[in-house]
């Protein structure tokens, strides 16, 4: 497909004009998302400030091993996806599909570890806030609040990751139909921005959940 013949919507001058606009749109959306998660982080830190000992007690109940493994998995999946973007810029569709498939599988592995195993254990150990909450005594208040944040944050992050899996799957399907090339790979880049953003949210969540206050 030659550059001049590339299709574009009628409000744009060229496919290039449209592609750069789409990328600008995704950046702006991510700016909005930063504020969305930013409020969560801010509230988390404010509440931790009022209830430090309780939050620490809560943090010690989290599964550090799974959390660490999940961090590695998510960063690796972003690395694969980014490699895929580089491959399609060299018109290598086969490698793009392979990279996206790996990123997709790793994303799924994160969700299984997080919700299939970690949440399952958390719930079995009565860590969900409520009358049957596991931690009692004076640390109960803060620890419960910690787990409010834990469940809200991981659920929202999980939903974002789920949407990301859908998007990466969509990229794989379109790549399989041979729609992308060095001349046209905008959707690949746009989804890549989103996928990396979901990764970055986790990079903030990881210390908030598992690391801060865990020490002796």
């Amino acid at each position: 497909m030659s550059d001049a013949a590339l299709p574009h919507a009628f409000q744009y001058e060229s496919a290039r004009h449209q592609a750069r606009t789409a990328i600008a749109g995704m950046w702006l959306f991510l700016a909005s998302e930063v504020l969305f998660f930013g409020v969560l982080f801010l509230s988390w830190i404010v509440c931790r400030h009022w209830n430090q000992a309780g939050f620490d007690a809560g943090a010690r109940q989290t599964a550090l091993a799974i959390g660490t493994l999940n961090t590695v998995i998510l960063i690796t999946s972003s690395a694969f996806y980014t490699a895929g973007v580089a491959f399609i810029e060299a018109s290598n569709t086969r490698r793009l599909i392979q990279c996206c498939a790996l990123a997709w599988v790793l994303g799924l592995a994160f969700l299984i570890l997080k919700f299939g195993i970690e949440w399952h254990e958390d719930l079995a150990r009565h860590l969900f806030p409520g009358p049957r909450f596991a931690i009692t005594g004076e640390l109960r208040t803060g620890a419960q609040l910690f787990f409010v944040f834990y469940f809200v944050a991981t659920a929202l992050h999980g939903l974002h990751l789920l949407a990301g899996l859908g998007l990466v799957g969509w990229i794989i399907r379109r790549a399989g139909r041979g729609e992308f090339s060095a001349q046209y790979s905008t959707p690949v880049a746009v989804v890549g921005l989103y996928w990396s953003f979901v990764d970055m949210v986790w990079i903030v969540l990881f210390p908030l959940i598992y690391l801060i206050g865990r020490g002796p």
């Binding site: 700016a31 909005s32 998302e33 504020l35 969305f36 998660f37 930013g38 409020v39 969560l40 509230s43 509440c47 806030p129 409520g130 419960q144 609040l145 409010v148 944040f149 809200v152 929202l156």
Partner: peptide
């Protein structure tokens, strides 16, 4: 830039309303 702030606030509010424990 402001609407997402409300959105997250409402999420936390709804959680607190449903589970009676919250932020």
């Amino acid at each position: 830039l402001a609407t997402p702030v409300l959105a997250m606030t409402l999420v936390l509010l709804a959680f607190e309303r449903i589970f009676h424990i919250g932020v």
